[in-house]
Write a protein that binds this DNA or RNA. Structure first.
Lengths: 225, 225
DNA sequence: CGATCAATTGAGCCGTCTCAATTTGGGTGG
DNA sequence: CCACCCAAATTGAGACGGCTCAATTGATCG
């Protein structure tokens, strides 16, 4: 059931069949490739089938803030829905594949698919929640808490995908993690080293082993996220 | 034209007349009063007619992050639209008055009012932009830049309302400003003093006079916002 | 007019950034 | 296949910014 990757969750089998109509279109994105740019017309949303993607916003001065790292099964382009314009850039961290869901096609199918509406709402809700969480983190958490929360979040999302929550490969650089968390790359690197020294994780370049999940949770202050 | 305060912008006179149907309902909110709470069912959006309101989110640990300060003419409750649930608290900073626009009533009128849809989209777009800006600020700006940007933003919005952009009264405490900007109240207070010492502003409790707008803009790094 | 809360200001410390040197790993071309 | 090169990551030293704790002054409201 490949489509499960594109728009999963609470749908009947018939609904899923109808969904197939929408997600025929696929797209391969090479590492570093851009799926869409801030300001582009937003005429579709995208399901990430494989690989990983970052989204980032850019202000007039070229200042960049990464707003999210997407994993397979997650949906992007939702933030542009309101405006008909993308509000962020989407860039592949590695060779990736997305499926494209055109808005006009979706509008046609929508009346027959109430579950689609519900699904979409749930996704946007999650999106808003994410951005709020990031706000809270940047506003009030200390660096170690931010990184701990970051690792736990990643671990949890990978587990949902069927991967081990205890060992994974970071798809993003220290600099990108730092930007996302509002820290410098050196601070991120130091924290990785410190966490390792304290026996919380084992880290070797981008390969991470979580040794003490509970310890990380305690550190992050907030229970998971 | 009182309604201009509730949902202004690009509508024909006839459209505005129809809008009147929606915004009959008014509500007075005392200082410190709560308009809605995180988790409440979101069955309406609100136009702020007078006063000022803050919105804040709260995580499981009770950690609070203020996400915005609303001025008259601005609309709140939009972030709850997707989810049917409010995702933030809305609390009055002073005695305020809002008009209530019930969603079900709006849905009935929507087909006859395409401009309403457009208007709503524009507002949500602005909302998302705001949250992104805050993200950028918390992630990458230094304290002085944050406060400068904050003052300029306020100044600009007040000017739109017809007030002087050069002198205004802060409706929020130093602590609330600090929370919003990811700083402590002491740092905010010190910055106010420093700005005053440097001749950028004159400040006396919550009364602010901007003396050197260009200087503030230079400080904030980003041109206005 | 006292009580209370908000704001200011100071001193000292801790955390994070900056700048810089070094190591590691991956990719490319000889 | 190896040597080289470049980007990413690590680690250190030092400076600075913002936080914490604490005392004082200044408003506001019963």
């Amino acid at each position: 059931m490949l489509n499960a990757i594109c728009l999963p969750l609470g749908m009947t089998r018939q609904d899923v069949a109808k969904m197939d109509e929408l997600i025929k279109e696929r797209f391969r994105l090479p590492k570093g490739g851009t799926l869409y740019r801030q300001g582009d017309v937003a005429d579709a949303i995208y399901g990430l089938r494989s690989g990983s993607i970052k989204t980032q916003i850019e202000d007039a001065n070229g200042q960049v803030q990464i707003t999210g790292f997407l994993l397979p099964g997650e949906v992007l382009g939702l933030d542009g829905l309101m405006t008909d314009q993308q509000v962020s850039h989407a860039i592949a961290l590695e060779d990736s594949e997305v499926c494209i869901i055109r808005l006009d096609e979706m509008d046609q199918l929508a009346p027959q698919l109430p579950s689609l509406q519900r699904q979409l709402r749930r996704l946007m809700s999650k999106e808003i929640g994410r951005s709020h969480q990031l706000l809270l983190a940047l506003g009030s958490l200390r660096s170690e808490q931010r990184l701990a929360a970051f690792l736990l979040n990643l671990s949890q999302r990978l587990q949902v995908l069927g991967y081990s929550p205890y060992e994974f490969i970071l798809r993003m650089s220290r600099e990108e993690i730092g930007n996302f968390l509002g820290l410098t790359l050196e601070t991120v690197s130091r924290l990785f080293s410190r966490f390792a020294r304290e026996g919380l994780i084992r880290v070797q370049q981008r390969e991470v082993h979580i040794l003490d999940m509970a310890g990380l949770q305690a550190l992050s202050g907030t229970d998971c996220s």
